[in-house]
Write a protein that binds this DNA or RNA. Sequence first.
RNA 1: GCCCCCGUAGCUCACUUGGAAGAGCAGCAGCCUUCUAAGCUGCCGGCAGCAGGUUCGAAUCCUGCCGGGGGUACCA
Length: 581
Amino acid sequence: MTTVAPARSGTVYFREVCESTAGALAGLSCHRSLEDVAAMYEAPDRKGLGDSAFPCFPLAKELKMAPQEIASQLAGRMERPRSVTDVRAIGGYLNVWYKPEIVAAEVLPIIAAQGQRYGSAEEGRGRTICMDYSHPNIAKPFGVGHLRSTVIGHSLKRILEKLGYSTIGINHLGDWGTQFGKLIVAFREWGDEGKLAAEPIAHLYDLYVRFHADAESDPGLEERARREFKKLEDGDRDNRLLWQRFRDLSLSEFERVYRRLGVTFDSDAGEAFYNERLSPLIDRLVQSGVARSGEDGALIIPIGGEGEAPLLLRKADGATLYATRDLAAAEYRYDTYHFDRCLYIVGSAQALHFQQLFAALKAMGHDWAERMVHVEFGWVKFADTMMSTRRGNIIFLDDVLAEAVERTKRIIADKNPALEDADAVAEAVGVGAVVFWQLSVKRQKDVNFDWDDALAFDGRTGPYLQYTHARLSSLLAKWGKPISMDRVAWGHLNSEEERKLVLRLGDWPRAIQVAGRQYEPQVLAAALLDTAQLYNTFYQKVRILDGEAEAAPARILLSDCVRQVLAEGLCLLGLQAPHQM
RNA sequence: GCCCCCGUAGCUCACUUGGAAGAGCAGCAGCCUUCUAAGCUGCCGGCAGCAGGUUCGAAUCCUGCCGGGGGUACCA
């Protein structure tokens, strides 16, 4: 178990320890600010080493003493604040154990009083962050690859809002570009109105796949596609109508997926939205000398030195590219939202594109270019064979969710057949498993798609968190009365798990801040798993309702706080928190 | 060729930006007449790709090599 102790949280018990440590250091003629001491403290990751640890190695030279000696001197000299039960020198560390009842008495009333607001912060007050996430391509299936941007973006949105920011969620739909030329050609060639009506995206995707297959042997197709897209861009009526149909049909299918995931947007201005802004933009860039013509008649914005790839603004045939639309979009977003930051939750494969984009914005004289952030993430890979092709070379998210819900229903039928609203619960838990699977791995890592991994229900999974939450809900419902603080006997919260739990809960606000600063929901996933794991151990060992009566209010209060944090954490990750399962 | 990312237990991943290697899964052995067993306990499992360097101290920073992935002007 990775236990995260409050090495750097802004709690009273931690500050007391820092003050005592700084005091003891001063006794050795070593003067350190409170902040420095706090920054040096870390959390031991092994059992038996206490809750906070102060490494003495960096002081050895200055004090001309062995770290072990410094640690034991400090342990001897350090005043024991009331929040501490033990201070020990182990190796070159000063290890600190907190007194659970003090920590609990500080942390739990705050959580109980603040409820859902616990962990909220003000750092983002008055600041707006634009977030570009999901952005699926019209006429292409919503695959598990799109899941990553969607759930990371959605979770970050909630996290940043929790930290006080205003957010603008933007679904920058891939509703423009040369693929529409291909689609138009393919639809006129092989399209079927019946299939389009019945399963629009599947049909359009088939056409798209067929186009590429046929283009291998018939190079003329590509040329026709380019022409059709150019016509579309020039406002050709028939192409425009076809495009509109493809877009409407696709969007309504996407909406269904977003509803299941609980994902929302504040804007779905996609690439097409910026069409009329492109030629003024290009004119401006040419006139100001930022853009110039490149090889073979294309228009470019040079980036960096010789040999570095420029940003391609317009192709030789006059058609624009997605970089052009991204430039226009960035300006539009700044003018419209006056963002403090603009995040692009987009895969690492496009890292160079965003470097170019940000550099181009800078070259255009926008000082806000440095507020643009590419929040990148690794691939969802389909390494091996069998699982790959259900309907082409992509795995439909619909299929994954359907399978997840199906498996969940079987588990419910087996474990809790009397469950009310079993279908709703299966939906929440099945979808939760899939969403959490994406968020439990750090962004930059590639994830291999594997049915059993994506649909896991045991161990460090979304359902594990939901299960713990449901168990707590049921427990608290059985208790069935409000907890009066003055009846809480803090001294009963004295086991290892209870101590670690209250420390973990006290550190929760910091986890949210770290997650927001690093744009990394995984930080929350890990914190919640630790919380749930500690609670389940506690739950297994101790009888809460029918144990010692004097201990019950304290244990119930602890349980209520854990439930509160789990519920809020699940929400920040974009999962539901059912009360039964 | 050049640039970027990754390499930690059999598998999937953490380690709070330099401090004491840690989970889950799988395997083995246990725990349901008691608050939800989607749970809990224990065991097994490591030369952190390899080789150097910086440092009191490196999985973490630097260099080289090996292996995997991505990018590299008219796709997005």
